[in-house]
Design a binder for these strands. Sequence first.
DNA 1: ACTTAACCGAGACGGTACGTCATGTCTTCCA
DNA 2: TGGAAGACATGACGTACCGTCTCGGTTAAGT
Lengths: 206, 206, 206, 206
Amino acid sequence: MARDGVDVGHIVKGVRGRPRSEAVERSITEGVLKLIEDGVPLADLSIERIARTAGVGKATIYRRWSGKEELFVDILRGMDEPAPDLAGDSMRDDLITCLDQLRRRGVNLRSSALLHNVFAQMKSLPKLWEAYQATVIEPQRRVVIGVLRRGVENGELRADVDIVLANDLFVGPMLVRTLLRSDAPLDKDLAEQIVDTVLDGLRPTG
Amino acid sequence: MARDGVDVGHIVKGVRGRPRSEAVERSITEGVLKLIEDGVPLADLSIERIARTAGVGKATIYRRWSGKEELFVDILRGMDEPAPDLAGDSMRDDLITCLDQLRRRGVNLRSSALLHNVFAQMKSLPKLWEAYQATVIEPQRRVVIGVLRRGVENGELRADVDIVLANDLFVGPMLVRTLLRSDAPLDKDLAEQIVDTVLDGLRPTG
Amino acid sequence: MARDGVDVGHIVKGVRGRPRSEAVERSITEGVLKLIEDGVPLADLSIERIARTAGVGKATIYRRWSGKEELFVDILRGMDEPAPDLAGDSMRDDLITCLDQLRRRGVNLRSSALLHNVFAQMKSLPKLWEAYQATVIEPQRRVVIGVLRRGVENGELRADVDIVLANDLFVGPMLVRTLLRSDAPLDKDLAEQIVDTVLDGLRPTG
Amino acid sequence: MARDGVDVGHIVKGVRGRPRSEAVERSITEGVLKLIEDGVPLADLSIERIARTAGVGKATIYRRWSGKEELFVDILRGMDEPAPDLAGDSMRDDLITCLDQLRRRGVNLRSSALLHNVFAQMKSLPKLWEAYQATVIEPQRRVVIGVLRRGVENGELRADVDIVLANDLFVGPMLVRTLLRSDAPLDKDLAEQIVDTVLDGLRPTG
DNA sequence: ACTTAACCGAGACGGTACGTCATGTCTTCCA
DNA sequence: TGGAAGACATGACGTACCGTCTCGGTTAAGT
């Protein structure tokens, strides 16, 4: 967790002295969002500039986050969709739901001026990338693996296939399209296509 | 093209006066490689430091490359494996050959002190990443699509499947493992597993 | 007056509520003295550090003194010798007594770890210097002038000499040695030498 | 010497690369002088502000001087009067000449907006004060001691008086007036008064 | 005993400056 | 003309203090 105020909140030391102002905190994060929406490249978002924009001292930022990336991670965290509701009846439907969330995330990445800008340059900030992996991709992954396990149980999925590999087969194509190939189309039925094609296989029938 | 020396080589003015020293050029690129092999993070490779290491003036670097990333791209370009020879008889075998090259590339990325370091932080340098995409990933992609087309022709692949989607189904899982999930195992038979599983599908037989 | 507590002491509002703690006051001044004796340069004595050392809030210091210098002045004030007893019989003897007090002060300045440190860097703190002038040098000056006037009355001093000038003639050499030339020797008989030489003049006799 | 460029000028390293710009140097010193003349307290002359005023990078200042004080010393050095011409015939006249230069310096200190400001706060900068002592006061002192020696030789001065003490007797009163008591008058005939009174002594005649 | 106002420690806050570093451009001398 | 050296303006870095301000909590005088 980036915000040490949260970590040490229960420690005696933490409850003494003037408490950190939530208004200041908002002012900082909103300032960053505004700058990004104005099209400022992430690389140009120096702590100095953020502080200036937010009308805040640099130390006030460093008091909360150890650096630029921790700050961005925190901001990004606040912008993600919640995990989708899975019906749990059909593995196929649940997979489509999961993959479609990935797809929608990809679409957001491209349409939202903000997210687009963030993501296009997220590669500039390794820690931000790692945090995205850890807080978004990885949880997603665990959900999908749960779905697949249920699929094996209820006979929708071959029992002799490595679950981890299966996960990559379903999720890999979508992730590659959303994260690595920013020009690839993300049609509405893409999730369904992927799931069905992977389930059916590519060998000619009969 | 990154190296403007190449661009202006044909201009009359360019052939007059003292020619650029190739020794200087080698000294720069070798200096960079040495630094990377010594474990210096890419982010710490400032132009200033590269010039110091190579015993070269900063202007001499800027004369050849417009910045750090162009320089790295140029260096990286000289390090890639050639495209594999494809037998052309069996789509399955050719796909395995292609995916296994991707896999080996991933393995190299992790074992070579140099490549590992470069790749781990390549995300810090968007242009380098783009160049990698353009010069390595994209050509690979075109080869695979060729293989798939031949597969449709000779009946190894269902004709009703979008070739582009099929490409993602095969390549996606491997790319995700090598590029996005740096902890995933890259076993020797992974390419074969992926190809066969995607061809067969995941639905229980019988 | 530096201590505003004294200034506002007579205001009705001031007599209510919790009175200022003398213990806190001592803790601050003693903390400063300790730091100085430990050899910390005056310039490094930030309010922040003083508060930390004394285990006191910064505001508690600012409540008592308007700044660093006022605090130091207050501390220094508590350290000066009382004015010497003058016999009053002989102008020469009284002058020697006065000048020797100046000399002893100079000697103290150099021997006392504390005073040495304070004085060596007093120049860094104009207000401290001024306060030293006003509370130490100036009173001294008035005493000497009194001595000289008595000298004129009882015939020990030429009546046609400007008293103010005479004061400078006696006191000047000693002050220069103690304050401006910190390497000059301050021998025990210096006061006597100065007084007698100035009285006698430097012209060859006969 | 504060300017390392001067010190290392003869070293091979110093003669290569782009030479330091004299224009920049002037721009810095003139900027400082302008600020002082505008009444900015010395304590408010941060390197940051000086750089801003001179339209110069901070590093450009640090390249030449190791800090604020070295810079001021260098500037002050360029503002002092040359040593006076001494006739050499009469010790009394030469002493008066020397003391009067001290007096005139004191007068300048008070009249020149610039020098006044510099001197009034020179105490804030110990190194500046030391440099003033070393480059102005001390040479002056050696000149006076030479004059006194000649005085002993030609019989104008008692031979049994310590020359160093004699120097303090003459110079001390003037220095005290100019440096320590900024309110003391500095009349035109002060030098003469001091010299004659010290020579004659203060004892009543007859 | 109860109120009340000032005290106290801790530490947040907007500023300003510190001295260092890298950027990309420029200027000079040497080969 | 190319190239090494390094000056230059710019601007960010992360730290330290400044003097002010809020907190929760304490301490006495006046009720």
